[in-house]
Amino acid sequence: MSETQAAATVEVTAKDLQGEGVLFCPNPRMPLWSNHPRVFLNLSQDGQGKCPYCGTVYKLKDGEHLPHGH
């Protein structure tokens, strides 16, 4: 990997979220060699979150809405 390579941005849908705006990294599509401890990220504030381990940014796709609680 190049030092100048930018961190990945992953667009997610409301269906990808666990609960109210939460998802985890590493995501199931990442290769095994890139695994790190599981981190839960909350997208409910501004529709995006950044993994503190690998720098992957998860962003809610345009037009998607976060599910609301009961």
Rank of each mutant, 00 (worst) to 15 (best):
G19C: 05
Q48A: 05
Q48T: 03
K50R: 13
G63H: 10
D46L: 11
P37L: 09
Q5A: 14
K59V: 10
P52N: 10
E64Q: 13
F24N: 15
A6D: 12
R29Y: 13
K15N: 13
Y58M: 04
Y53P: 00
P26I: 01
G49Y: 00
T56Q: 10
V22N: 05
P52W: 07
P52R: 08
P52D: 11
L43H: 05
L41N: 02
N35F: 05
D16N: 11
K61P: 00
S44K: 13
G19K: 02
E11G: 02
G19E: 06
H68T: 15
G21E: 01
H65T: 15
S2W: 04
K50D: 08
K59S: 13
H68R: 15
A14T: 05
Q5W: 03
Q48H: 14
G63T: 08
R29C: 12
R38I: 10
E20D: 11
L66A: 11
K15R: 14
E3S: 08
L41E: 09
E3Q: 06
Q48M: 11
F40T: 01
Y58H: 07
Y58W: 12
L66R: 02
G69E: 14
G63V: 11
L41C: 06
G55K: 09
F24G: 15
L41A: 12
V39N: 05
G21S: 11
L23R: 04
K61I: 02
L23Y: 01
L23D: 03
L43C: 10
F40Y: 09
G63L: 13
L23G: 02
H36M: 08
Y53S: 10
G63P: 05
K59N: 14
H36F: 12
C51W: 01
K61D: 04
L32Y: 13
L60W: 02
N35I: 00
P28D: 11
D46F: 06
C51T: 05
R38C: 06
Q18I: 12
L43G: 02
H70M: 13
K61T: 05
G21L: 03
S34A: 15
L66V: 01
E11M: 04
M30R: 14
T4E: 14
L43I: 06
T4R: 15
V12F: 07
L41P: 01
Y53C: 10
P28R: 14
C54F: 05
G47S: 07
G47E: 04
C25I: 06
A8H: 03
T13D: 08
R29V: 08
A14H: 03
G21N: 02
Q18T: 12
L66T: 03
